[in-house]
Design a protein around this nucleic acid. Structure first.
Length: 570
RNA sequence: GCGCCCGUAGCUCAGUGGAUAGAGCGCCUGCCUCCGGAGCAGGAAGUCGGAAGUUCGAAUCUUCCCGGGCGCGCCA
C-alpha cells in the first residue's frame, strides 16, 4: 500500500531485511526480537557493505551466547531467506553483520519510495497526539530581536516536522497584552508624545517615538488607551515580520481574555486548584503548593494586594489548552525561562495531568558577533538586531538555515558579516542548488524518461521495474540514503530536533552530487538507463524538497547568483 | 551557594552505547572541450575540558573536579 504514508514510513527501504534479521535473530538466540530492535545503518567504511547491524552484540547478553556465534547463525539463515535481494552477508569485528544488498532490492526500493513521492519519510508516528506548539510569544512592547528569530524558526520547523511525522499539530502565539509591562508601554508612549524622557523603567527604543507619532492624540490620551493601541501596533508589526519569516501561527491567544468575564478563565482555573488543595492562602497571598511537585519552592499566584502574578495567567492558559483538547503542549521558551519549568509542570500536574505532557523546550542564546566582535545589545537602551534586520541582511532562507542547523539547546554564534559575506557559500545554497540541478536535469531527459517519472509521480511503483543496467555504486549509495529519511524524520520529531533534518539534507545533497558526477543522467547510454536515473533524480528532488520544506526554506527550481556575488565570482 | 544548558579540528558546530570521531568555513595540492563549477578529488589539522567508574565496547551512561552561559522576586 504505497499510497498510505503510515505504512511506508513504518516499513522503510530495508523492511524486508529488517524483518528477516529479526526472525533469524530470534531463532538463533532463543529470545524475542522485534523488527524495530534491529538497527540498520550505513557503515562509514568502504568495504563494510551497504548496511550493517549490531543486533548480534545487542542480543549477546540477553541470549547468553557470544555475539559472533549469534551473528554467524543469523547470516547463514539470511542468505536463505532473502534470496537475490541479498548479495552478501558477513560477520566482522566483534559481531557486526555487514550486508551487501542485491539489485532487486534497490529496484523495489526506488519504486516504493518514488510512488510515495513527497510523502516519503512522513506519517511514521506510532501514536498520533493532538499537540499545541506555542512559540515566539514575544512581548508586544518591543521589536522582535535575534532570539525571537531563532525561536520562530525553531518552533515553526518543529511544528512542520511533528505534523509531517503524523501528529495533529496547531501553532500558537501567546500575546502578553495584560499587566504592568503593558501599562509601562502606555506611559512610555505618552512621554514620547509630550517630548519628555521616558520613565526610568520605561521603554526607551526609537520605536516608541514611532508609536507616539502614529497615534494622533497621543499627548492627551490616557495610559490605558495608549497601551492598548501601542500593543495592537506592535502586534501588527510582529505578525508582519513573522509572515515574512515564514512562521505560521494558527492562533494568536490574548492573555487579556483570560482575565475577562465573571468568572474569568483565571478564576475558574484557580478554583479548580483550590478544590484540589494545591492552592492555599498564606500571608494574604494565594500560593501554589508547587514544591511538593518538584519545584524548588511554592509560588505566589495572587499577591496580597489582590493582583494576579503572570503565573496566574500561565496557569489559566495551560488549563485552557487542555480544555481545548490538546494532549500535549510544547512551548519553545528562551534560556532565561528555564527556572520556570518546574513550576509550570507542577501546576500542570495539579490539574491531574501528566507533567511529561507539558514540554518546555529551552532555546539557548544566539550570540551575535560582527567581524569577530560581540555586538552589544541593550534592551533598555533599545539597541538590538531585529528579526527584520537579519532578514534584510541575509535573507529568510539563509537566516532560517543558520538558526536551524544546530540543536536548540546549544548556544550558537552568528557573525552577521560572515553570514552576509558567506551567504553564497552557505550550505543552504548547496542544498537548494542540488534541488535546482535535479529539476534542471529532469527538464533535459528524453520522452521515455519523462514518462517514467510521470508514472512514478502518479504513484506507480512498477514504473521503474526492469529499467536500467547494473546498479552503479553511486546509485546504491543514493538509494540507501533516501531510505534513511523515515528514520531521520522519526528521530528528529521524537527528539524535537529539526536540526537533524538540516544535517540530513546536506548529506543527501552531497550524495546526490556524487551520483550526478559519476552517472550521466540526461542522454545516458544503454537501454532504460536514462529513465532509471531520471527516476532516481526525481525521487531525490522530492526528498530534498521535503527536507527544505520542513525547515521552512524554499526549494527553488532555478537559482541565480545575487548580482554582487556574481560580480565577485567573475 | 543551588538549579538548568554547554565544553568535540584554527573557527562555527553535527554525532547520546558500536568498527579508523564527522560536516561547513578557513588553509594546502590538483581538476572547467563534460547533463548548472554555488562544483569535484586529495591533503594537513582532534589527549572528544580533566579524573575515576559501569560495559565485550564510552564523545555518548554514573560520580567528582575545572571552565563558560543562563537563571534563582508577592517583576514580566
Amino acid at each position: 500500500m504505497p499510497n498510505d504514508p503510515h505504512a511506508t514510513a513504518a516499513h522503510g527501504i530495508d523492511a524486508a531485511v529488517r524483518t528477516a534479521i529479526a526472525q533469524r535473530a530470534a531463532a538463533v538466540s532463543g529470545v524475542e526480537v522485534a523488527p524495530a530492535e534491529v538497527v540498520l545503518s550505513a557503515p562509514r567504511q568502504a568495504g563494510h557493505g551497504d548496511l550493517a547491524t549490531n543486533v548480534a552484540m545487542v542480543l549477546a547478553k540477553r541470549a547468553g551466547k557470544p555475539p559472533r556465534e549469534l551473528a554467524e547463525g543469523i547470516v547463514a539463515g539470511l542468505l536463505e531467506d532473502l534470496g537475490d535481494r541479498l548479495a552478501g552477508a558477513e560477520v566482522a569485528g566483534p559481531g557486526f553483520i555487514n550486508l551487501t544488498l542485491g539489485e532487486p532490492l534497490f529496484r523495489e526500493a526506488l519504486g516504493t519510495v518514488g510512488a510515495v513521492g513527497r510523502r516519503w519519510g512522513g506519517g511514521g508516528v506510532s501514536r498520533a497526539d493532538k499537540i499545541n506548539v506555542e512559540f515566539v510569544s514575544a512581548n508586544p512592547t518591543g521589536p522582535m530581536h535575534i532570539g525571537h528569530a531563532r525561536n520562530a524558526a525553531y518552533g515553526d520547523a518543529l511544528a512542520r516536522l511533528l505534523a509531517f511525522h503524523g501528529h495533529d499539530v496547531d501553532t500558537e502565539f501567546y500575546v502578553n497584552d495584560f499587566g504592568s509591562q503593558v501599562k509601562n508601554l502606555g506611559r512610555s508612549i505618552r512621554a514620547r508624545a509630550l517630548g519628555e524622557d521616558v520613565p526610568e523603567d520605561g521603554y526607551k527604543g526609537e520605536y516608541v517615538k514611532d508609536l507616539a507619532a502614529s497615534i494622533p492624540d497621543a499627548a492627551t490620551a490616557d495610559d490605558e488607551r495608549l497601551a492598548a493601541e501601542g500593543v495592537a501596533a506592535m502586534l501588527d508589526r510582529a505578525k508582519a515580520t513573522l509572515e515574512t519569516f515564514g512562521a505560521h501561527f494558527d492562533r494568536f491567544f490574548s492573555e487579556k481574555t483570560l482575565h475577562e468575564g465573571d468568572p474569568s478563565a483565571v478564576d475558574r482555573a484557580l478554583e479548580l486548584l483550590r478544590e484540589s488543595g494545591d492552592l492555599e492562602l498564606e500571608d494574604g497571598a494565594w500560593w501554589l503548593r508547587s514544591e511538593k511537585r518538584g519545584d524548588d519552592k511554592d509560588r505566589v499566584v495572587i499577591r496580597a494586594n489582590g493582583e494576579p502574578t503572570y503565573f496566574a495567567s500561565d496557569i489559566a492558559y495551560m488549563r485552557d489548552k487542555v480544555e481545548r483538547g490538546y494532549e500535549r503542549s510544547i512551548l519553545a521558551v528562551g534560556a532565561d525561562h528555564h527556572g520556570y519549568i518546574a513550576r509550570m509542570k507542577a501546576a500542570y500536574a495539579s490539574f491531574g495531568n501528566d507533567p511529561d505532557d507539558l514540554e518546555l523546550l529551552i532555546m539557548q542564546l544566539v550570540n551575535l558577533v560582527e567581524n569577530g566582535e560581540p555586538i552589544k545589545m541593550s534592551k533598555r537602551a533599545g539597541q538590538f538586531v531585529t528579526v527584520d534586520d537579519l532578514v534584510s541582511y541575509i535573507g529568510v532562507d539563509a537566516a532560517r538555515w543558520y538558526l536551524l542547523q544546530r540543536s536548540h539547546d546549544t548556544a550558537i554564534e552568528l557573525d552577521v558579516e560572515l553570514a552576509r559575506k558567506e551567504s553564497s557559500e552557505n550550505p543552504v545554497y548547496y542544498v537548494q542548488y542540488a534541488h535546482a540541478r535535479a529539476c534542471s536535469v529532469l527538464d533535459r531527459v528524453g520522452a521515455e524518461a519523462q514518462g517514467v517519472v510521470e508514472r512514478l509521480d502518479g504513484g506507480d511503483a512498477a514504473a521503474v521495474a526492469g529499467l536500467g543496467a547494473a546498479v552503479e555504486p553511486a546509485e546504491r549509495t543514493l538509494i540507501i540514503k533516501l531510505g534513511e529519511l523515515p528514520d531521520v524524520v522519526a528521530h528528529a520529531a521524537d527528539r524535537r530536533a529539526p536540526h537533524r533534518i538540516a544535517t540530513f539534507a546536506l548529506e543527501l545533497a552531497q550524495t546526490f552530487t556524487a551520483f550526478y558526477r559519476d552517472c550521466q543522467i540526461a542522454g545516458a547510454e544503454g537501454d532504460g538507463v536514462e529513465a532509471w536515473r531520471a527516476a532516481l533524480t526525481a525521487v531525490t528532488r522530492d526528498a530534498l524538497a521535503t527536507c527544505l520544506d520542513l525547515l521552512g526554506v524554499s526549494a527553488p527550481e532555478r537559482m541565480e547568483r545575487r548580482e554582487d556575488e556574481a560580480a565577485a565570482a567573475a
